[in-house]
C-alpha cells in the first residue's frame, strides 16, 4: 500500500492508490530524458500504461514559474514555495488520479531535487521536509549519478553553453560560470547523497553508455511491477 511521507493529503485514501510511482532523479544531462523514453516504451510494450510527470509542468503555475526564473526576481524561499505549488498541483491532478487508475507514473525528478536545491540555498531542512510531507512515497527512486566533470562535457555537447540555474549562478559561488557549475553540481550531489539511505535511492552509475544504464533501470523496475514476466 502507498504511503505518504508524513501525513495523507486531505481527502486521499492511501489504499485507493493502486498504481506504481517510479522516480528518476539526476542532474541535467545525466540522461534522464533518454532513459525515461526507453523505459516508457518498454513498459507499454509489456502492457503497462504510463503517465509521465516532472518539475515545472503544472497547468496552474508552470508558466509563471518559468517567467520568474527568467527574471530571477524571487528569493530562494519564495521560489521553494512556488515549486511546491507546482509540485502539489501535479501530485493532486496528475499523479494521484493516475495511481488511482492503476497506471505506472514516471516522474522526471521529484521532491528530492526540490529539497536539495532549497537546502543548498540556505533553507532549513526541517522546513523543506515539512513542505513535502503530504507527498506520496515512490515505489522506486532511481538516482542517476554522473561526475560533474562528465556533466560539463555532456552539457557543452548538448547545448554549447551552461545554464544559469544549473550552474547555481544565483548563489554567488564564483563569478566564473565554469567554476560555479562545478561547485554547484558538487553541492547538489552531496545533498542528494545524504538522502540516499534515508529515502532508499537505487543509485545508478549513469556515466556509462545509455544501453548499460537502460539495462540496469529495467532490471530494477521489473522487481516492483505486479505480474511482471520477462518473456516477450
Amino acid at each position: 500500500m502507498k504511503k505518504f511521507f508524513q501525513e495523507p493529503l486531505p481527502g486521499v485514501a492511501p489504499a485507493s492508490l493502486r498504481g506504481k510511482l517510479i522516480v528518476i532523479e539526476g542532474p541535467d544531462c545525466s540522461g534522464r530524458t533518454t532513459q525515461i523514453e526507453l523505459v516508457s516504451k518498454w513498459l507499454e510494450l509489456k502492457g503497462y500504461a504510463v503517465v509521465q510527470t516532472g518539475l515545472k509542468r503544472s497547468l496552474l503555475v508552470a508558466e509563471e514559474l518559468e517567467a520568474a526564473l527568467q527574471g530571477n526576481v524571487l528569493s530562494p524561499r519564495t521560489l521553494s514555495l512556488f515549486y511546491a505549488t507546482d509540485f502539489y498541483d501535479q501530485l493532486e491532478n496528475t499523479i494521484i488520479p493516475a495511481l488511482r487508475a492503476g497506471l505506472v507514473v514516471i516522474a522526471d525528478r521529484y521532491v528530492y531535487t526540490l529539497m536539495a536545491r532549497a537546502i543548498i540555498r540556505g533553507a532549513e531542512p526541517s522546513w523543506v521536509e515539512a513542505i513535502y510531507r503530504m507527498a506520496v512515497v515512490p515505489d522506486l527512486v532511481l538516482s542517476l549519478q554522473v561526475s560533474p566533470k562528465v556533466l560539463v562535457e555532456r552539457t557543452f555537447q548538448a547545448h554549447y553553453q551552461l545554464d544559469y540555474w544549473e550552474s547555481g549562478m544565483d548563489m554567488g559561488l564564483s563569478r566564473d560560470w565554469f567554476t560555479s557549475f562545478l561547485k554547484y553540481q558538487r553541492k547538489l550531489r552531496l545533498e542528494l547523497k545524504k538522502m540516499e539511505e534515508r529515502y532508499g535511492f537505487e543509485v545508478i552509475n549513469a556515466g556509462r553508455s545509455a544501453r548499460s544504464v537502460d539495462r540496469d533501470l529495467k532490471a530494477k523496475i521489473a522487481t516492483i511491477l505486479d505480474g511482471f514476466s520477462d518473456s516477450e
Binding site: 486531505p10 497547468l59 496552474l60 514555495l81 511546491a84 502539489y88
Partner: peptide, 19 residues
C-alpha cells in the same frame, strides 16, 4: 479555473506571502 485544491490554494498564497 477552480482548479485549486486546499493544498495548492494554501501554497500559492504562501508563495505570495513569502515574496
Amino acid at each position: 479555473r477552480q482548479a485549486l485544491t486546499p493544498t495548492t490554494f494554501s501554497l500559492i498564497h504562501a508563495t505570495d506571502f513569502a515574496d
